[in-house]
Design a protein around this nucleic acid. Sequence first.
RNA 1: GCCGGAGUGGCGGAAUGGUAUACGCGCGCGACUCAAAAUCGCGUCUCGCAAGGGAUGGGAGUUCGAGUCUCCCCUCCGGCACCA
Length: 937
Amino acid sequence: MERYDHSKIEKKWQERWKESQLYKTSQDPSKPKSYVLDMFPYPSGEGLHVGHPKGYIATDIYSRFKRMQGHNVLHPMGWDAFGLPAENFAIKNKIHPRAAVEKNIATFKDQLSHIGFNYDWSREINTTDPAYYKWTQWIFLQLYKKGLAFQSNEPINWCPSCMTGLANEDLDGNVCERCGSVVEKRALPQWVLKITAYADRMLTDLDALDWPEHIKTAQRNWIGKSEGSEIEFAVTGSDKKIKVFTTRADTLFGATFLVLAPEHPLIQELSIENTAEVQAYVAAAAAKTEIERTNADKEKTGVELKGIKAINPVSKEEIPLFVADYVLGEYGTGAIMAVPAHDERDHAFAKKYNLPIKDVVSKHFIANDEYAEKPDLETLNRKVVDAIIRDKDDNFYLIKEGSYVHLVGGGKDEGEDDLEALKREVIEETGYTDFIINEKISSAGFWGYRHTKNKNQRTVGYAYEVVLNSLERISSEVDEGKHEIISVKKDEVLKTITAGHPHAYLFEQYLKHESFTDEGILINSGEFDGLTSEEAKKKITEAVGGKMTSTYKIKDWVFSRQRYWGEPIPIIHCEKDGAVAVPDDQLPVLLPEVESYEPSGTGESPLANITDWVNTTCPTCGGPAKRETNTMPQWAGSSWYYLRFMDPDNKEALVSKDVEKYWAPVDVYVGGDHAVRHLIYARFWHKFLYDIGSVSTIEPFARLEFLGFILAEDGRKMSKRYGNVINPDDVVRTYGADAFRTYEMFMGPFENTVAWSTSSITGTARFIERVYKIESGPTEIKSLNPVLHQTIKKVTDDIEAFKFNTAVSQMMIFINAVEKEGSVGKEQWENFLQILAPFAPHVTDELWEKLGHMESIHTTSWPTYDPTKTVADTVTVAIQINGKTRATIELPSETEKEEALSAARSHADIAPKLSGTKELRAIYVPGKIINFVVELS
RNA sequence: GCCGGAGUGGCGGAAUGGUAUACGCGCGCGACUCAAAAUCGCGUCUCGCAAGGGAUGGGAGUUCGAGUCUCCCCUCCGGCACCA
């Protein structure tokens, strides 16, 4: 047979598929449907590199597979072409964005055409086509009519280089995700979409989606729901109340001060003594960049609001108020109750400004059963104090050695306070008298149970650091022989204390110097003492008249851009009627064709200068009015495009209800990147469209497969800048589209990021050549049946699971077996070609034709496998002795246990090793292993 | 710091709790060739002449048997991060 001329054969089939409209989709209710979608590309000026088609190859394989399984398949392609990248490209090349987009699309389409995809191009869409963006504008107006699109003057992120406002999602930390410039805060009139109204539903509905866990997690993080309470604090000498949000209402007794964000409006309203100082701080905070504000490592600063106090609603204590920029104005209520004992940030602030720290939660200490409450015993309350005693120079620590090894200390007597009890215990137990007691170990309380004297000893304990001034001793319990006192080095203390004893925990807290931020059991909290944190959150919130509520990190979507290349926002501003929606019959509001479209940088869109376009009449009153000049962000068109593919030419609606009911939802959605932004925006719009009855499902994408990128051979990102771009055109020319497709699927797991390797692609190129050279004969080769049926099974299962790399391996194994056998039966060969067809559509259609078929292989039915044929007649079974493999044996696959065991026992390599041993048991796993567990004598 | 994922040959990677390293690349040797390329064959974790031993980031555990399950630790990647 002649050498495989991939260029000629691939061209032949690509033309033939096009002529026969092989991939045109129609609605056919008799068949199950499959909607298989790629994230449609942004046609940049750089053209495709080999990384782009990876996902398209996967969906191509999957959709061909589904079609062969008898599904009616929707597999379309289109272009996401509004937005900054196209506009910047056009400015740089001094052409109009529309011309740039047309040119880039033509390049992309040409590149794609060589790879042999089965897109239904009759459904191609382009977000910059007025017939398309009419409906993008229509959706915006529905949002506006429901109050979910509104105007705002709040400060937003402004990119000084792109000269436009940005959404939170457009930031990479504190810089513009596109150009890397540090963003500024700027107050501009903006259109904002109320995505927060859907935050809770977007969170809840994630659970049911068949999406990768890391994407769901990224979305959960982004939405950032936290459940807590809103509690009001009264202010002395004022009828104003300060509302705080907290997730830890259980710590309310420990709230020793209150902190307002610099942006908090009440700062301007309260009458305070040090107005000048406070205003200076507020102004300084406003001037700081986001980075300076939000760096958690920097030292906390703040200013007290003098002359007023807040009242802790549960303890009724008067507590000071501060303004500090570690509290964010845009999150929660912009004010917090500070609990320094149980929050690290508040703790740092309290230390700096010398504010009281009050422990109100203690660790619930249950290291083992010994410290758990026994329900059948009576419970006694017991309070203890413990001493971490060291010498002045930190050379040694004193530890008490009795039935347990632990710290010095003991129970408090009636009427004693901590310090009195501690002093008494130290003297009694050690005999040292000259010492100072340092402050309490921060939050080193514990609450647990012991069971002495047949009672639960419910114990709350604290530790204090005690430093010895001199080593002179008086007679003590040591001298009475009650216990020993030993001195150990600091790093030996934890090892010395009896394992699991609460004192080990106390000492750890002592070493860490951290506040206790976990939940536990309430102390110093009046009637709430003894409750768990969880119980106390509700009860304390209720007791002070607060309410349980949630707050979210996600912010509303800043939706206007001060740039030319986007959908005009279809609003008309009239002096009399305000913002008026453009009537449906006047949609689309066309983007005017202009010579100059560079951004102005003034915060106004370049459209503002086109007076002919801007000046219009009010649809309501007919008087003079002006058009809104901001445009929509790049992410508008891609938030609903998957719906338009279902019904691309509909002039009455964005999608007809019947058509939508048939195709929705997208069954498999494939792409990379966009873990948050696009997938959040599209889910938001979809849920809104569901609410207004335009779509029938609550989620747009039932299953999401996330693809790993392809890096350049040097391990870096593929980019013109590095000169390491591999163009798929070159690869296809050299190795053929089939080899290219198969290689990209074989590179590794679909979701892995892997570096391109030009030497490795020879492997799949050889594979395609070997397939081409194999000649089938009329006679079925029975010995090939197990591997053939295993291969059909594995390829079927693997395509469904997007495990393309192992599907390719298995097909290679089959080809190796055929070559070893020297021949293959025609029907066996046909089955193999059919399962290879989605991967290598050209060579398989060619071979299919050579076998005498008139129809394309891609219209045939997917082969089924016979489970009984996937098992070989004989199998290799490993024989192990005590879990170590000592030999293998060929056995008929149906062999029974006793038969298998006796065959193994008499195996030439095994028999000698078993002699003189005592067999304890024997395990037989048919087709896998025999394991003799023996006692060596 | 919190959350998610992952650590297996020179490389990409494979392995329903059952012979670890399939498949491919690379490399070595051989065949064909004047020669090279292409192609084909054989070999390729490690120590050991062998018998045998040791290896799936490290340490413990469960099991007849662990890359796979459990616990602790380390490293890398991704997301979020002064979010109360």
